[in-house]
C-alpha cells in the first residue's frame, strides 16, 4: 500500500467523495468562527483602530496565494517525474483558486492601505511581488487553456511553473532591491516574540485554518471536476473510434 495508489483517478475520486463535505464543513466552521471572533470579540488596535480587523482576511489569503503556487510547483514536479494524471490536474485545479486568493490579498491590502498609508496602491516590494505573482497565475492558466492536447498541456504548464517559480523568486529579490517599502513586517512567524498580540493571534489562526481548509476543499472539488472532464473526453474518443471501426 503506497500513497501513489491514490494517484489513480478513480481511486482518488472514490477516496475524496466522503471527505469533501467534511472539508467544506470544517472550512466553513473555522471561517465563520474565526471571522466572528475576530470582528466582534477583539478590541480595536490602539494605533490602527478598527481597520486592523481586515487582517483576518488579508493575511490568510496572502498566505494561501503563495502556498497555492508552491502546491502547483510540487504537483508539476510530481507530474513530470512520476506522470500521475491526478497531480497535473490538481495543479490545474489549484490555479484559479490561487489567483482568487491573490486578488483577495491585493484588494484587502488596498482597502487596508488606504486609511493606513493614505493611498490605495503603493509600489511597495510586497505589493509589487503579489502583482507579479498574479501575472504568473494568469500566464499559467492561459497556457492551460490554449493547448488542446491535455498531456502536452500538462507537460508545458509544468515546465512553465518551474521556470516561473525561479523567476518569481528572482523578481521578489529584485523588487526588494528596487524599492524599500511601506509594508509592515510579517505578522506571523514561528518564533513567537515578533508576532501580533495574542488577542489577535488566535482568531487569526482560526481564519488561516479556515482558508487552508477552504483551499483544500475547492482544489479537491475542482480536481474531481477535471478528472471527470478528462474521463468524458476519453469515453467519447473511445466511442468514436469504436464507431469508426464498424
Amino acid at each position: 500500500m503506497s500513497i501513489w495508489e491514490y494517484a489513480n483517478p478513480k481511486k482518488f475520486v472514490e477516496t475524496t467523495t466522503p471527505l469533501l463535505p467534511w472539508t467544506f464543513g470544517l472550512a466553513g466552521l473555522c471561517l465563520v468562527g474565526g471571522l466572528i471572533w475576530g470582528f466582534f470579540f477583539t478590541p480595536d488596535d490602539y494605533r490602527q483602530g478598527a481597520t486592523v480587523k481586515i487582517i483576518y482576511l488579508h493575511v490568510p489569503s496572502a498566505l494561501m496565494a503563495i502556498n497555492a503556487w508552491l502546491m502547483m510547483l510540487v504537483a508539476s514536479l510530481i507530474w513530470l517525474v512520476r506522470r500521475h494524471h491526478v497531480s497535473a490536474l490538481a495543479a490545474r485545479a489549484a490555479a484559479p483558486v490561487g489567483v482568487t486568493m491573490t486578488l483577495v490579498a491585493l484588494v484587502t491590502g488596498a482597502i487596508w492601505g488606504q486609511p493606513m498609508w493614505g493611498t490605495w496602491w503603493a509600489w511597495d516590494p510586497r505589493l509589487t511581488s503579489f502583482l507579479i505573482l498574479f501575472l504568473f497565475y494568469l500566464g499559467y492558466m492561459a497556457l492551460w487553456e490554449a493547448i488542446a492536447d491535455p498531456d502536452t498541456a500538462a507537460d508545458l504548464t509544468s515546465v512553465l511553473c518551474i521556470v516561473g517559480s525561479v523567476f518569481a523568486l528572482l523578481s521578489r529579490y529584485a523588487v526588494n532591491f528596487w524599492n524599500q517599502g511601506l509594508h509592515q513586517g510579517a505578522s506571523l512567524s514561528l518564533d513567537a516574540e515578533k508576532n501580533v498580540a495574542d488577542i489577535f493571534y488566535y482568531p487569526l489562526l482560526a481564519c488561516i485554518a479556515g482558508f487552508v481548509l477552504l483551499f483544500l476543499a475547492l482544489v479537491l472539488l475542482r480536481t474531481r471536476t477535471e478528472i471527470r472532464v478528462r474521463r468524458i473526453r476519453a469515453l467519447e474518443l473511445r466511442a468514436r473510434r469504436a464507431e469508426a471501426r464498424t
Partner: peptide, 15 residues
C-alpha cells in the same frame, strides 16, 4: 489498427 480499447493511451487511467 489498434482496437478501440487498446491499452497504453494517455487517457487509460480515466477509463
Amino acid at each position: 489498427v489498434a482496437a478501440p480499447d487498446a491499452s497504453g493511451g494517455s487517457d487509460e487511467a480515466f477509463l
